[in-house]
């Protein structure tokens, strides 16, 4: 089985979110970038398929040279080789079309992506990629097994979960639950040394165009200070929620 894990290179959650170029671009200055948390769960699940079922695991990111440390980290965790599609990631549709070219030429059976990136929160690349490559798609995937040509996946829904069977090729939008958090891997020294020797192939993109762009970013209006209510005067809280906030 050949697996491709799509890795989005995102600012760590605790980063300060600021913008430059008249508030049109994210200010990456001093920001720590990490593997998108949803993709980390997927990568760890891919390692399980590698170790238990002999799967080959490639990782891919669409982006400039700045994403390479993130790909190296994925190699240190255990991926066999990395691919960087050498073009800036502009929007979900463009990234999905770039990835579709990689998937088609690589002949992957299983593509593991994350349910969403924590930067632009698009939640669109995996589903688009599946549709562009004619693969089946399971979103919000919290459990995945593959046996021969078929997969069994569990998907989280709004009021519960569903288990489905799926034919390959398959794309998933994965999240926490694919593996336990305690099983997430941190690169060790040996992994980091080995990663240096593994291939990181830089390939040109297919010049997919973006159809959307951010014309401006704003910070949400600053919130007023919290109104504290005395624990002995909870009627006041109910009054505020009813008459002021109008939510009960």
């Amino acid at each position: 089985m050949k697996i491709l894990v799509c890795i989005s290179h995102v600012p760590d959650t605790t980063s300060k979110i600021n913008f430059t170029d008249s508030d049109t671009k994210f200010d990456a200055n001093g920001v720590q970038f990490v593997i998108n948390p949803n993709d980390e769960f997927g990568l760890t699940r891919a390692m399980w398929f590698k170790e238990k079922q002999g799967a080959g695991v490639d990782v891919v990111t669409v982006g400039g040279p700045e994403v390479e440390p993130t790909l190296r980290k994925a190699l240190a965790i255990g991926a066999d080789q990395a691919i960087r599609v050498d073009t800036a990631a502009l929007d979900g549709y463009q990234v999905a079309r770039e990835l579709a070219a990689v998937v088609k030429s690589g002949g992957y059976d299983l593509v593991i992506a994350g349910r969403e990136s924590i930067d632009y929160n698009g939640g669109m690349v995996p589903g688009m990629l599946a549709e562009l490559t004619g693969a089946e798609f399971v979103n919000n995937c919290i459990g995945l097994e593959v046996d021969g040509g078929a997969a069994r996946a569990t998907r989280e829904m709004d009021g519960g979960k569903a288990t489905v069977s799926a034919t390959l090729p398959l794309v998933i939008g994965g999240q926490k639950g694919l593996v336990e958090e305690s099983d997430l891997r941190i690169p060790n020294m040996r992994g980091i040394m080995m990663a240096r020797k593994k291939p990181l192939n830089v390939i040109p993109g297919v010049s997919a165009q973006a159809d959307t762009s951010f014309v401006k970013f704003h910070k949400p209006a600053p919130k007023g200070a919290v109104k504290l209510v005395d624990p002995d005067k909870l009627d006041e809280l109910i009054n505020l929620l009813h008459n002021e906030a109008k939510v009960i």
Binding site: P11, T13, I17, F19, F26, I118, D119, Y120, N121, D211, T212, S213, F214, V215, K216, F217, H218, K219, P220
Partner: peptide
């Protein structure tokens, strides 16, 4: 639209 896990709002132009 909300972006950066609701820490910023982006004005998105949709050209298609």
């Amino acid at each position: 639209r909300n972006t950066f896990t609701n820490k910023a709002i982006g004005d998105l132009e949709m050209k298609s």
